[in-house]
Design a protein around this nucleic acid. Sequence first.
DNA 1: CTGTTAGCGCCTTCAT
DNA 2: ATGAAGGCGCTAACAG
Lengths: 358, 358
Amino acid sequence: MGEIYYLALIKLHQLKKRVTIHDIAKELNTTAATVSRALNNNPSIGIAMKQRVQEMAKKLNYRQDKIATSLRSGKTQVIGIIIPSAKISFFGSVVHGIESVARKRGYRILLFQTNEKYTSEKEGINTLLQSNVDAIIVSISKETTNYDHFLEVKEQNIPLILFDRTNDTLGFPSVVIDDFKGAYLATTHLIKQGYSNIAHICGQQHIKIFEDRLLGYKSALKDAGLPVKDENIVMGDVSIQSGEEAAEKLLQLTNNPDAIFAAEDFMALGALQTLKKHKLHQPGQFGLVGFANESFGQYITPTLTTVDQRNIEMGEATAELFFSLPSKDLYKEGQVAPKITLEPELIIRESSSRKSDK
Amino acid sequence: MGEIYYLALIKLHQLKKRVTIHDIAKELNTTAATVSRALNNNPSIGIAMKQRVQEMAKKLNYRQDKIATSLRSGKTQVIGIIIPSAKISFFGSVVHGIESVARKRGYRILLFQTNEKYTSEKEGINTLLQSNVDAIIVSISKETTNYDHFLEVKEQNIPLILFDRTNDTLGFPSVVIDDFKGAYLATTHLIKQGYSNIAHICGQQHIKIFEDRLLGYKSALKDAGLPVKDENIVMGDVSIQSGEEAAEKLLQLTNNPDAIFAAEDFMALGALQTLKKHKLHQPGQFGLVGFANESFGQYITPTLTTVDQRNIEMGEATAELFFSLPSKDLYKEGQVAPKITLEPELIIRESSSRKSDK
DNA sequence: CTGTTAGCGCCTTCAT
DNA sequence: ATGAAGGCGCTAACAG
């Protein structure tokens, strides 16, 4: 009677308590050390013992405690990611790519969003360092101009990899696409389609990707023997509205353009609205190319020619870059940080149809 | 000389070695316990001591080791999330919402993707349990029909919250939107706009959200005194192509419909392509409403009336639901799990313009 | 108010 | 091939 009660108590206790290697050891009349070795496939453990340990582990529903393992080993098998926002589809896709590759290697992902705030970014770095992550992957917030928080990561000798929103002066490995080339491809495509007075809606020039896109645009014009006209370059700020306004300005030029290369899809979309207002949206009437390959591009009318940024691949490449890093002398003096540049891909759709003659 | 060398060694050592509460204690001629208490703002520590500890902590650039804290306390302050894919914008947005709320409470996010695979989902649960997360948030993979892995979470007495892709039979807290109501709103709106022969492109009926949307559609028709005709209900599978095909079928009916409510935006988009082919896309000519509020809806021509699923709010509500859960008797026998139902919102755009008379 | 002690679960010397 | 012992960094119980 009392015994049954006692057994019930034990049972209750077991439900609450986590199964440890000690429990397995006790059942097998051996020690935790042996169990640990057996589970980690240590060669010095006999095959018979390994069998028994594994069976008992399964029987007791043992699950390794990663926290304890991390504390002991100093490695967490966790990669921290800092992005502006998971709701921006580009970053969601990159995270997808990183997670896929990381998981195959037994790594987990700790996610942190900055909402483009510098203070959140600092906080994120701090949190991830506290969490002892094995690596940190960052796409820099728009607001960030001070980079001391990243240097702290370097001091801790923890790998930090930048993607897309990078900064070459800090000496961190990075992954980007070739924005110059993307812009060059886009502009050249418009030229080949018969357009000759091609305008550019550019982005803020303190952001490197937009600077590169402007340079690519100019270079393409030059290489084709076309003039680069200042009046044909109007600044926008990655919004539909700024695209509309920029296009409006361009259409009011005395010698108005016959095509626009916008540095970003949302700006291109705005430009398209303006073109529609001016009845200039028929295929072949006016050339238009965007940049980013946002999903709406294939659904709008006309469908939008754009430059694909290889979102998923960027995530995969970023994760793989981490795994390819040397474990020693990560930030060796005078060593140049690896930089992976992905090839952009021009996605040709209706908005850049060959210029019609009439 | 030897002394300088020795100092250099110490310096080198300090760079590598993490600063612990013991280091702070040593500097202050006190013990680690006191430092720990001071840093955790324990009331039994004198204000003067707290000051000194905090200053020294800052001076030495101390950072708490969350791993050690977790091991000791049994709490990780980490929430695990399992979703089909971060590259699907809906899930990205939900993750955004969860992370925002969690971070305000000092929680971090461990992210896991299933790619709609049952085995990955199982693996995810296992990984998160190994990581000792304080809660698990899941949107069930399409492939999943066996739910034992979720029950294991229950056995460990760890809170598990489902969102969107939920299952009411498992007894877990959950967050969804009212799909029935969303469909009802959409259909009623079309009726009020003057359409009377409204068709429905439905989704696979074993998925609850699609079942509810069909029911909402039928209910709205009945309440308006309109007949529910089987021929007006065609099945699709959440793709543009299936939307095109379904619309094609509907337009070939002898008594063909004057409006379509599609159970999902991509199906609506496909339907729209078909309408364009049949020159039925002028506002007021043919009514069309989708479901999901995908971003492309506001950019296509005509802009798409749709039902918003409150992505971000869903994430926020899910996180908040976790924080509102009782810490004791989480899965008490016979207790009914809380279920939060968010209100869908009808987003009215051009594609459902009032029916014109001609 | 502060110090002592012990241990979370694991792994890794060192010893046998 | 296995056991014993110690410690990763932190905090809670128990003493004063």
